[in-house]
């Protein structure tokens, strides 16, 4: 990114190849719509170009990139869109993995589709911390930097998010049985 910041715009392609899949997974996990997620990935790379002079090479690039990604997502949600991300997701039932697959019969007899649905129903802040820690495999220190909180706070929030996920998961399981 330091070279992009110095004017070598073509180096943005290297960053794109390295990070666009992870960013896409972040957005699709937060919004559950592929089209919106792709738009937001594109948006992040253009914000990187636009704000390239604000990049501080002494700080981790990934944290900077996810801060941009979070802002892009928040702007999308805040900007008076007729429907918010969650509503959009529910109305435009185009979930990325809507059809049941073999993962339904995974270990512990747990239904991964059910787990996916439980994750989608988590409040945004809890879902985000699980997406960053579990899907993006980020260190808690990095997550703290992105979210602007202490590492210890991140760990506590991960625990709470897992508790909330479990409750929703079991509630969905009950619904399914009854």
């Amino acid at each position: 990114m330091a070279r992009v910041s110095a004017g070598e715009l073509s180096k943005l392609a290297v960053l794109f190849e390295r990070h666009h899949r992870a960013l896409f997974r972040y957005f699709v996990s937060m919004s559950r719509t592929r089209e919106m997620a792709e738009d937001l990935v594109q948006d992040v790379f253009f914000r990187m170009l636009r704000y390239r002079s604000s990049y501080d090479p002494s700080r981790p690039f990934t944290a900077w990139m996810y801060q941009i990604a979070r802002n892009a997502g928040i702007d999308q949600k805040r900007g008076g869109e007729v429907v918010g991300i969650e509503e959009y997701m529910e109305r435009h039932a185009e979930p990325a993995s809507s059809s049941p697959g073999p993962e339904e019969h995974a270990s512990r007899g747990q239904n991964l589709n059910l787990l996916r649905r439980a994750l989608d129903r988590l409040p945004r802040d809890k879902r985000e911390i699980l997406v960053l820690s579990r899907f993006q495999n980020m260190k808690y220190e990095q997550i703290g930097e992105i979210l602007g909180c202490e590492t210890g706070t991140v760990k506590v929030r991960v625990y709470r998010a897992m508790r909330a996920l479990e409750q929703i998961y079991f509630a969905l399981e009950k619904e399914k049985v009854s």
Binding site: F24, A37, E38, E103, L115, R134, F135, L165
Partner: peptide, 30 residues
């Protein structure tokens, strides 16, 4: 144990992949 199993299952959720159009849009835009 319960939450640990759920944590492992979260890791087993398939990763969504972007469509090929995203790459071409990016390079065209760049």
């Amino acid at each position: 144990e319960r939450l640990g199993a759920l944590w492992r299952d979260l890791g087993a959720l398939p990763a969504e992949q972007p469509g090929p159009g995203l790459r071409s849009r990016f390079y065209d835009s760049l």
